[in-house]
Design a protein around this nucleic acid. Sequence first.
DNA 1: AAGAGGCCCTGATAGC
DNA 2: TGCTATCAGGGCCTCT
Length: 287
Amino acid sequence: MPELPEVEVVKESLSRTITGKKIYKVSVKNRNLRIKIHKDFEKNLKLKFIKKVNRFSKYIILDLENNKYCVIHLGMSGTIHILKKIGLNNKTNTSFYHSPFLPKKHNHVTLKLKDMSIIYNDPRRFGFFKIFNNKLSLEKYFSRFGPEPFSNKFNINYCKNYLYKKKKNIKNFLLDQKFVSGIGNIYASEILFKSKINPKKEASLITNSDIKKIIRFSRATLNHAIKSGGSTIRDFKNIGGNKGYYQNNFKVYNRENKNCLDARCKGLIKKIIITNRSTFFCNICQK
DNA sequence: AAGAGGCCCTGATAGC
DNA sequence: TGCTATCAGGGCCTCT
C-alpha cells in the first residue's frame, strides 16, 4: 500500500480524528512486527495525550506528552482503522463499536481513546511501532534519511553531487530513501515516465536537464496523488474506509503491453525487474 | 563506499 | 476442487 501519498492521506485523517485526545488503553495482540514491539510500549502510551499527528516520508509520528514520540510504519500491508463507539450494552456494560471495513484477522495493535478505538492491521507484519523518548533520539533516527521531494534540499546541486559517478541505475536511487525520502516502487516508475528517462539509465549519466525533470515530476506526481486520496491497489483505504483514485492516473504502472500514453509515441509499456522489483516503462520515449 | 543479494511475512492469483 | 508457484506497494542486514 503505502508510499508517501498514501501515508499522508492516513496521517491527515488520523490528525483530524485523534489530535488532542487521550489514550486510555493500549492492547497488543501480536508483538512480532518487523521490529518487535517493546515491552514498555503500552506503558509509554497509556494515559498520554496525542498532541499532534505528523508525517515524515512514509512514517507517521504521534507527538505525545512528555516529549515522547510514537513512530508508525505501515510496511507493505499495514492499514489503520477507526472504530467509533456507537452505544452501550446495558446488560454487559460493554461498548459497541462500528467499522464495516475492519478485517477479521491481523489486528495487532489497538489504542482505545474515549469514544473510539484506533486499530492497526497488518497481514505481512512488515510495519512497526517504535517509541522515542525525546526529540533528539527522534531526530537522530530520521537524520539518515534524504530529503523529501518537496524539500528545498532536494535541488539540482544535491542530486548532481549524490549521483556523481554512481554506477547503479536511476530507478534504484529514486527508491533509495537515503537519496530521497517517500518514493516507492509505483511512483518511481510514474516519475521516470513523466521525466522521459529510462529506469535503467546509469545515475552518473543523468544530465542537469534530467535532474530538473526528476525534481519537478517527483513533486507534481506525489502532490497529485495526495489530492486524489492516494492510490488504491489491492484494497488500500484511508481510515474512514474511503478509496484513493490516483491509480486511475497511472501512466505505466501495471500497464504491461498497453499503449504508451504519450500522444506522440507509438510504443508499448514494458515490464522489467530491477533489483527484484517490477518496473514499468516505455522503451521508445524514455531515453 | 558502493553494489548485489537475501530475508522478514501472509494472501491473492494463475496455472496445472 | 486442490495443489504448487509466483508475486505484491518496504527496508533492513550481510557480504564482497
